[in-house]
Deep mutational scan, measured.
Amino acid sequence: SHFELRVGTITLHFDNISEELAEELEKLAKNGVHADEIRRWWEEWLK
């Protein structure tokens, strides 16, 4: 499923992401983690 995450002024787009993972990314964003860090985390997870 597709997921969009708003982090400050940036909107990150994720394809084929589980609800659980989407929730984890939302938690990171709410805790003030920068969009670049979240994207890096996601790319690492995909490997």
Rank of each mutant, 00 (worst) to 15 (best):
S1L: 15
S1K: 14
S1Q: 13
S1Y: 13
H2W: 07
H2D: 08
H2Y: 06
H2A: 10
F3R: 01
F3P: 00
F3V: 04
F3Q: 01
F3D: 02
F3N: 01
E4N: 02
E4S: 02
E4V: 06
L5W: 02
L5T: 00
R6A: 14
R6T: 15
R6G: 07
V7E: 02
V7M: 04
G8V: 02
G8D: 09
G8P: 01
G8H: 03
T9V: 08
T9N: 15
I10T: 11
I10W: 02
I10G: 03
T11D: 03
L12K: 00
L12D: 00
F14N: 00
F14P: 00
F14H: 00
D15N: 10
D15S: 11
D15Y: 15
N16K: 05
N16T: 04
N16V: 05
I17E: 00
I17G: 01
I17F: 02
I17A: 03
I17D: 00
S18L: 03
S18W: 03
S18H: 05
S18Y: 03
S18G: 07
E19F: 12
E19W: 10
E19Y: 11
E19D: 13
E20N: 08
E20C: 05
E20P: 04
E20V: 11
E20K: 12
L21N: 07
L21D: 06
A22H: 05
E23R: 14
E23V: 12
E23T: 12
E23P: 01
E23C: 07
E23A: 14
E24S: 09
E24T: 12
L25P: 00
E26R: 13
E26K: 14
K27W: 10
K27L: 11
L28W: 09
L28Q: 09
L28H: 05
L28Y: 05
A29F: 04
A29D: 02
A29N: 05
A29P: 02
K30I: 10
K30G: 08
K30Q: 13
K30T: 10
N31L: 13
N31P: 06
N31D: 11
G32K: 04
G32L: 05
G32A: 08
G32V: 08
V33D: 04
V33F: 12
H34G: 15
H34A: 14
H34M: 11
A35R: 02
A35K: 02
A35L: 11
A35F: 08
D36S: 09
D36Y: 05
D36N: 09
D36Q: 07
D36E: 12
E37Q: 11
E37H: 07
E37I: 06
I38M: 03
I38C: 02
I38N: 00
I38L: 07
R39F: 12
R39S: 09
R39M: 15
R39E: 09
R40H: 09
R40L: 12
R40Q: 10
W41E: 05
W41A: 12
W41V: 14
W41L: 13
W42N: 01
W42H: 12
W42S: 05
E43R: 04
E43M: 10
E43T: 09
E44L: 07
E44A: 10
W45Q: 10
W45A: 06
L46V: 12
L46C: 08
L46F: 08
L46M: 11
K47A: 13
K47L: 13
